[in-house]
Nucleic acid binder design. Structure first.
Lengths: 341, 341
DNA sequence: GTGAAAGCGCTAACAA
DNA sequence: TTGTTAGCGCTTTCAC
């Protein structure tokens, strides 16, 4: 049972061993065409392939068919805890369907286009993008090049590409309603970057939810990134320019934790002085001090669904929906409390 | 400037446009062989390639050369915060050298072998493994198949494959020395799974460090995985079977947080009643209550170095070292305090 | 310094 | 139902 040396056994070897022609082997080993083969030959071929340890050379098949059974995934920052579960969902779907996944970190958005071009040279069958900015020219490029693509986490507002997203407006409504329901009135928002679809949608969600309750937005500051440092800076700015709000709805957990940092530095207590809410329910935010009230997203499902949509498109099945919107849910912890006037 | 439709422009088109033979184009566009080409022709070919938007078809090159400029990475769980920075390091190295990275989550270790086989069919040039168990038969399989491979994070004790790891024994020594130096004497260990190299090395590190200080190991319990739940169970077990220690050195941050859970449930305070140390310095452990004293690893560098070693091997450069050991460092926070008595 | 030609391993018309 | 044949796009030996 010694394993043959690299690239030993090819389809020709199997054909030879089975006493049939290579094309017969090819058919026998292709699930879609094995119906054309007689029981007897099928058995012989499979036995030979098994015995020789035959593994079809994907590069050769790719060259011939133009399909590689690989996809690319572009994420902005894999160390951001939002993305690993999304990737896991994508990978689980891919693995179940016999695809491999190229993962790339797109550190600088200007690098996205060359990365996509390299992926096209690599002949990936499609890409999942977790990096779209608003009005991203990359999407036009992909369409023009005929590359199959699905967005995840961030939607394309102009609907050029299918997307799987969480309902950001609903998410913020859940946060605002929780705060209003527990007696908060002066509610502020730490908004995300406004060149990213999620940043815009969440801000609109907060504003709409407050309007629905007949309340004004007490104050607002914009973070230049979804990071703890940006959150801290924005919180400082907000406190410098406005009366202190009773609660701050944050666009993201990291930003909320940055707000914690700034409040702690100023000797203000959460939630006694200010209630804080986050968004994402990152790992460990249940263990910070105080445990963060936040919005939980079905990240893994986001990735899974996006990948399934992409494979449907690649394999020519009808696309059921162009944009899939998943429901987030509120997780109440101890960074929010009841206000009684 | 309309982008050509998928798979439009090939090396033949460029040759035609430049008025030379395809083989000349191939040479001109290959950095290693362009020395053979005259200035003049080089210029013409490059201009034509540029103008037509030529991108070499990697699948075709792969079939011809047997090299794909892709590598595979196997991680046990991408949602474990240890791995994203490692992946980032790998990806940064790969990207700089023109490689793409297939990432797969190996949920069940029994799936590792078939995944590696699929990767071999995909003709990856090598693999980085973050999943080796002790005496893993997978390593023999890889060697026998002639697949280039480098281990990361977990070393192979029998030295079958090169590896890049952190010094686990030193890490535990740093923790123990810190505790002894701050007056702790009754020191216990929450050990990692003993079928994983890191679990064994860290336990040995704790035992050795205590021996060096002339102290006994006050108590020990083994976790069946590197998870918060396992940490909690092990902590419960430890408290049930032994007198309460003054400090517990944990094999990992998640396990340490599980210990927090159990202690809190019993009304015990960290660090007043028991000091706790972790390992990894995961994101946010500086924000938990109390902020965790732990060991910081150069995760990104671990990944980077492993990838560089793999590329050196793939590209036939001499391997400088078979096992690279990086230095961890102690990060003191508030889960440990001085004991006076 | 450049061209000619063969062939990597596979799949898919087409023929029988 | 099976075999024959051509060729996917590229690299590389060999010849000039």
């Amino acid at each position: 049972m010694s394993t043959p040396s690299p690239q030993a056994v090819t389809i020709r070897d199997v054909a030879h061993a089975a006493g049939v022609h290579v094309s017969t082997v090819s058919r026998a080993l292709n699930p879609e065409r094995r119906g054309l083969i007689s029981e007897e030959v099928l058995r012989v071929v499979e036995e030979a392939a098994q015995r020789l340890g035959y593994r079809p050379n994907r590069a050769a098949a790719a060259l011939r068919t133009g399909r590689t059974r690989t996809i690319g995934v572009l994420v902005p920052d894999i160390t951001n805890a939002v993305f690993p579960p999304i990737l896991q969902g994508i990978e689980a779907s891919a693995s179940a369907r016999g695809y491999f996944v190229f993962v790339t970190n797109v550190v600088d958005h200007a690098l996205a286009r060359p990365i996509v071009e390299r992926m096209m040279a690599q002949k990936v069958d499609g890409v999942v993008l977790a990096i779209a900015t608003r009005d991203d020219p990359l999407l036009d490029f992909l369409r023009q090049a005929g590359m199959k693509a699905v967005l995840v986490n961030r939607a394309d507002e102009s609907g050029r590409l299918p997307a799987v997203v969480s309902d950001d407006r609903l998410a913020m409504k859940l946060a605002v309603d929780h705060l209003v329901g527990t007696g908060h009135r002066r509610i502020a928002h730490l908004a995300g970057p406004q060149d990213v679809p999620t940043g815009v949608a969440r801000r609109q969600g907060v504003e709409q939810a407050l309007r629905d309750r007949g309340l004004p937005l007490a104050a607002e500051a914009e973070c230049d990134s979804y990071s703890r440092e940006a959150g801290r800076r924005a919180m400082a700015q907000l406190l410098a320019q406005h009366d202190r709000p009773e609660a701050v709805v944050c666009c993201n957990d990291l930003v909320a934790l940055g707000a914690y940092d700034e409040l702690r530095a100023r000797g203000l207590r959460v939630p006694q002085d200010i209630s804080i809410t986050g968004h994402n329910d990152m790992p460990l935010v249940d263990m910070v001090d105080p445990p963060l009230t936040t919005i939980r997203l079905p990240h893994r499902e986001l990735g899974w669904r996006a990948a399934e949509m992409l494979f449907d498109e690649i394999e020519g099945r009808a696309l059921s929906a162009s944009t899939v919107v998943l429901r987030p849910e509120l997780v109440v912890r101890e960074s929010t409390c009841a206000r009684t006037g």
